[in-house]
Amino acid sequence: MKTWSEVITFVILTISTFAFDSHQNPAHVTRFRKIPAEDVVFDGAVKDYISGSRTRCAMSCIPRTQCLSYSFQKSSGRCLVFNRRVIYGIQMTSATGFQHYWRVTDHCPTTQGFFILEGSCVKVYETQVTWQDAESTCETQGAHLFAGQTEREMYTAESVVNSRGSASRNYRFGAWDHDKNGTWFWVTGAKVTSSTWQSGAPNGSRSKICAETVTYSAKQITANKCSNLNPFVCHVILG
């Protein structure tokens, strides 16, 4: 149940964002979505200041066409604005009290090769690259490696690979054990659930810390070396 304060903040952000984006591109509306990353703060902000409220923090992100995410710490009123989508495990340090938001859109960029399948906006790349290069490529498209945080999304992933890729190949997905401690996260900061894994995976190897799909069963993932070359699937989160 949302509090009145949260409802009012959502309305203000939606109206303000709509007003800005409608002027720039009347066909699309941009919103923000909270990601589940916890107990971390991301480095490399293009703006770091005391905004006093999350609404003001978000408002400072709206006019910046290159702003892809922001973070807000309620206890201090600190606001961090980023020109990249903050990715769990990349350029971050431990910290408490921060909430992180991605800029999302209602538009799937089909002119860039993306397509909508079962509500997910995705693109399959057959080029074989490392996990890090795959994530970087997705980011240049305003996306990230596919993060199947629910059983439905994992079944969608299998449909994506079967319809636009090859079931006989292993595709890179956006999960990894960046701390090499056996705890796996999606790039959003959500923990990978046990039902997502192939039987017997992950096996605790400190050299195999990046995820890829299982051959002929893309609704499950397994662990492999980040340096291995694989095709991959990019995912745009729609608001």
Score class of each variant (00 low, 15 high):
residue 35 I to E: 00
residue 35 I to C: 01
residue 37 A to L: 11
residue 37 A to V: 05
residue 40 V to L: 09
residue 43 D to E: 13
residue 43 D to N: 13
residue 43 D to L: 15
residue 44 G to W: 11
residue 44 G to V: 05
residue 44 G to M: 13
residue 48 D to G: 10
residue 48 D to C: 12
residue 48 D to M: 11
residue 50 I to L: 11
residue 52 G to L: 11
residue 54 R to A: 12
residue 59 M to K: 03
residue 59 M to I: 03
residue 60 S to M: 05
residue 64 R to Q: 13
residue 64 R to D: 09
residue 65 T to N: 14
residue 68 L to I: 02
residue 69 S to M: 12
residue 69 S to K: 03
residue 70 Y to F: 15
residue 71 S to R: 08
residue 72 F to V: 04
residue 73 Q to R: 15
residue 74 K to M: 08
residue 74 K to E: 08
residue 77 G to D: 10
residue 78 R to Y: 05
residue 79 C to W: 06
residue 80 L to G: 00
residue 80 L to D: 06
residue 82 F to I: 08
residue 82 F to K: 05
residue 85 R to P: 00
residue 90 I to S: 10
residue 90 I to M: 08
residue 93 T to W: 08
residue 93 T to E: 13
residue 94 S to G: 03
residue 96 T to E: 11
residue 98 F to D: 01
residue 98 F to H: 11
residue 98 F to A: 07
residue 99 Q to Y: 03
residue 99 Q to L: 09
residue 101 Y to L: 14
residue 101 Y to M: 14
residue 102 W to E: 06
residue 103 R to W: 02
residue 112 Q to S: 08
residue 113 G to R: 09
residue 114 F to Y: 12
residue 121 C to A: 09
residue 122 V to F: 00
residue 123 K to F: 03
residue 123 K to H: 06
residue 125 Y to T: 04
residue 126 E to W: 13
residue 126 E to A: 14
residue 127 T to V: 13
residue 132 Q to M: 12
residue 135 E to L: 14
residue 136 S to L: 12
residue 137 T to C: 13
residue 139 E to H: 12
residue 139 E to W: 03
residue 142 G to Y: 04
residue 142 G to L: 09
residue 142 G to C: 02
residue 145 L to F: 02
residue 146 F to E: 07
residue 147 A to K: 01
residue 147 A to Y: 07
residue 150 T to R: 05
residue 151 E to F: 10
